[in-house]
């Protein structure tokens, strides 16, 4: 009987996490289709925060990544992966944005420029 109660309790935890994650997705959707009262940057920040929150919920409740776990390798390697992932992703975007800025062209202009160079046979 105790086991059955424990089982129900754990099922409910999954359900709560599911509903929260779903709510966050719906919120992101609502923001995305609403009339644009946000700038691009602030929209991105809000929506990424929602994503980060959902990441936390899914990692903790679906992937069972809590600090109670005895072998901490999963949590440690997960944290380390996220750390390096952000370095590489953010670093790449930083580098490439600076490149584009220094080229002084929009992507379409860049495209036309590359096309014309290519036609010259470089």
């Amino acid at each position: 009987m105790q086991k059955a109660r424990e089982y129900r309790r754990q099922q409910l935890r999954y359900a709560y996490a599911y509903l929260l994650a779903g709510a966050l997705s719906i919120a992101t959707y609502a923001l995305a289709v609403s009339a644009s009262t946000f700038t691009d940057t602030s929209f991105a920040v809000i929506v990424l925060c929602a994503a980060a929150l959902q990441l936390y919920i899914q990692s903790r409740y679906f992937l069972h990544l809590d600090d109670k776990e005895a072998p901490r390798w999963r949590l440690l390697s997960y944290a380390f992966t996220w750390f390096t992932l952000l370095i590489i992703a953010v670093g790449s975007i930083w580098i490439m944005n600076h490149l584009n800025y220094n080229m002084g062209m929009s992507p379409d202009q860049m495209d036309q420029y590359m096309n014309s160079q290519s036609l010259k046979g470089f």
């Binding site: 995305a32 990441l55 899914q58």
Partner: peptide, 23 residues
């Protein structure tokens, strides 16, 4: 674990590709 992980990746596809793409 694999299946949950794929949903985690999808969070970011939904957010970065679709939500930020539509804006």
């Amino acid at each position: 674990v694999f299946w949950h992980f794929l949903d985690v990746v999808w969070i970011f596809i939904f957010t970065i590709v679709y939500a930020m793409g539509v804006k």
